[in-house]
């Protein structure tokens, strides 16, 4: 296990503990079963304690490996792009939010979103833009037609 991995383990362990603690906090007030030996609370609470115990074990293992001088992470054969992934996620959240708030309809929102995301992922190469736009138009208006006219269902 390398140092970066150990950090991820520690971080994920903390996230798991927070999630389990939230469940324990919310489940504490659940009443005992009225018509059965155990109520709605004990099983989820037991699982939450299990999550905490396992997360602590994982964090302990990661911490121990760090003190043992975990090696540096091996170099990857490619350049990872976490910032681009963050931008795409942010873009997706904005895409969903604009439709949820009713600011823009599904088809135009999809056209803008797809064009921007494809162009971003293709490193803003100029020759990609027209292709991205065509794909976005087909997807945006094509899916609107498919879902509202053929499958007769709602769209965001």
């Amino acid at each position: 296990m390398d140092r970066v991995q150990a950090r991820w383990d520690l971080g994920m362990g903390l996230v798991a503990i927070v999630i389990a603690a939230a469940f324990l906090w919310d489940g504490w007030s659940l009443p005992p079963g009225a018509f059965e030996p155990i109520g709605a609370g004990p099983v989820p609470r037991a699982v939450a304690w299990m999550v905490i115990a396992l997360a602590l074990a994982m964090m302990g293992e990661a911490g121990w490996r760090r003190t043992q001088g975990a090696p540096q992470a091996a170099a990857l054969a490619y350049q990872p792009r976490p910032v681009v992934a963050l931008i795409v996620m942010a873009g997706t959240i904005i895409y969903v939010a604009t439709m949820a708030l009713g600011w823009i309809g599904f088809a135009p929102a999809t056209v803008v979103y797809l064009t921007a995301m494809i162009w971003l992922l293709a490193d803003f190469r100029r020759n990609v833009l027209p292709v991205a736009l065509v794909i976005a138009l087909i997807m945006g208006y094509g899916l609107r037609y498919l879902f509202t006219r053929v499958l007769i269902t709602d769209l965001p």
Binding site: T92, F147, L155
Partner: peptide, 20 residues
């Protein structure tokens, strides 16, 4: 096929499918 084209389309399908 470049992932730059595929991945955003998959994300749109996720949104549409789950909403529908």
């Amino acid at each position: 096929v470049p992932k730059a084209y595929v991945l955003p389309i998959v994300l749109v399908f996720c949104v549409v499918g789950v909403f529908a």
